Computed example of a mutant assay.
Amino acid sequence: MPPLRKSPTLEEFEEIKLSLYSLCGDVTAVRVQQEQLLGILEEVKQLRLLNVEKDQRIEVLERRVDELEQYSRVNDVVITGIKIRPRSYARAVAAVGGELSDQDTQSMEQQVVSYLQSKGIETDLEYIEACHPLPTKNGRPPAVIMRFTNRKKKIALLKQGRKLKGTNVFINEHLTKKNADIARIARQLRKQGKIQQTWVANCKIFIKLNGTPEEAKVLVVKRIEDLDKY
């Protein structure tokens, strides 16, 4: 027969009782902390949802701002590679008694139009609303922004851009930084053979996918992230 267990003394009962009370207190404290932790986690979850909603709103607003900025440039072209003499140069030559050429006394738009006409490109000063240079780097000729009063005249000029082949002078749409970045990445994808073709028309960036005629879809790209899949 197994030995009989000795009954706990009154002191031992009291110790067990105190231990149980202490354990109950610890369990209660853990539960309180657990509830607090769950509350904090729920707060974090709600804050993350709010941040996602806020980021989405910011993205929408930024897209609208960019669209408005791009729309304000829809009648513009950017011409690079033409050497333009500013009026300040003509004034300086005249001040020292120098002899001025016709080019020296021409306005910027007159110089640009004269150059284009010398290459067989038809354009008319009458339809040019404004013309001014952009800041230049590394001593290169400044790019020139030319704004037309009529979008059709701008498109007509862009279509004649092929006549400048081999001159290192280029005529392009006046894109916002975001759209210029999209166009640049699209050109890189075309060079890498990941897409079939890319072009800009009416300040929108188009790409043509690789594949069969059914697969080679033409898409308008509005976000840089849209190109990640290619």
Rank of each mutant, 00 (worst) to 15 (best):
Q197E: 13
R190Y: 01
A186V: 09
I185K: 13
Q188A: 08
Q196H: 07
T212W: 02
N202W: 03
K217Y: 04
R184F: 13
R184W: 13
G211V: 03
Q196T: 05
R187D: 07
K208M: 13
Q196V: 00
L189H: 05
L219G: 03
T212R: 04
E215D: 06
N210D: 01
K191A: 12
C203H: 12
E214V: 10
Q196I: 02
Q192F: 01
A186T: 04
G193K: 03
R190G: 06
A216S: 15
R184C: 09
I185D: 09
R190L: 01
R187L: 14
Q197C: 08
F206Y: 14
G211C: 04
I205V: 12
N202H: 10
I182M: 04
L189T: 02
K191I: 09
A216D: 10
R187C: 04
I185H: 11
T212H: 08
W199C: 10
N202L: 12
G211P: 12
Q192C: 05
K217L: 05
K194Q: 15
A216E: 05
P213D: 09
C203A: 15
K217I: 06
L209V: 02
K208N: 11
D181Q: 14
R190F: 02
L219N: 00
L219D: 01
I182N: 09
T198W: 08
R187G: 07
N202Y: 10
V218A: 03
I182Y: 02
L219Y: 03
I207D: 07
L209A: 07
